[in-house]
Amino acid sequence: MLPGNRSCQGCGLSLAYRYLLKALRGNTILTIPASCLTVLHGLYPTTSVAIPCLNCTFPSTAASASGLVAGLNALNRTDITVVAVAGDGGTYDIGIQALSGAAERETDFIFVCYDNEAYMNTGTQRSSATPMGALTTTTPILTKQQKKKDMLKIMDAHDLPYLASASSAFPLDLYNKFVRAKRIKGTRYIQISAPCPPGWIYPPKDTVKIGRLSVETGIVVLFEIEDGKFRFTGRSKTLAEKGSRLPIINYLERQGRFRKMSIEQLTQLQKWVDLRWNEYLRRAA
């Protein structure tokens, strides 16, 4: 990534992107759909990323990656790692069909979902990754009424050789996951929680703080599953060992998007976070 790009100040995506590209190093071809990442990559004829990249349509990221893999195989260039990077909208929603298909075909590529929990590029509309209780421009008064889709669970059901959950606030953990993923063959799925100041409504300087709180509260859990074996990683591992998670209110109260969340929603969300945490604990045991 070259100095200077078009993302907002304090963009969690741009942090994560920097770390993951460093970990992947050269010999990589990227494909990206319409998203904030398209904007980050720059306007023709300039770009902020010195890695070959093929832009694809919004729904087709994983299929686009399949085509890259097929084309490279046909030309006997199997040394290149194909990496697809999409937002939550491009993964959980419009891209889920192509992603599920590519995973089932055991396509040899890394799919990265950076999760900023809404359609940010079009101005913060609700996606299926938006958490319950969040204000978006399409849930502007009542907040989102449903809980977030558990995409990691869906991808886990595809029985992948490697799956990981990371956060842009934990660079080393994220970096290690990409280094590990690059060495594995088959479909690898890495989901990165990427806080977004304008969408989540907090000051740009707090991106890392918000990201850390998401992990401290167990809203985001750092883990990896390799060949079916679940492992907590980084800060989540420590939390799991110590059993000292913070209540989610510590995370929610710092973001304007949750200002209309009801007490019932808060209780429900806390219950869901606890339930999932216990599920993870059982899997890790």
Binding site: I29, C56, S60, A63, S64, A65, S66, G67, A70, G71
Partner: peptide, 11 residues
């Protein structure tokens, strides 16, 4: 999508 990408890399 597959055809577009594969053609773009030269197949």
């Amino acid at each position: 999508a597959v055809c577009i990408s594969a053609s773009a890399v030269g197949a």
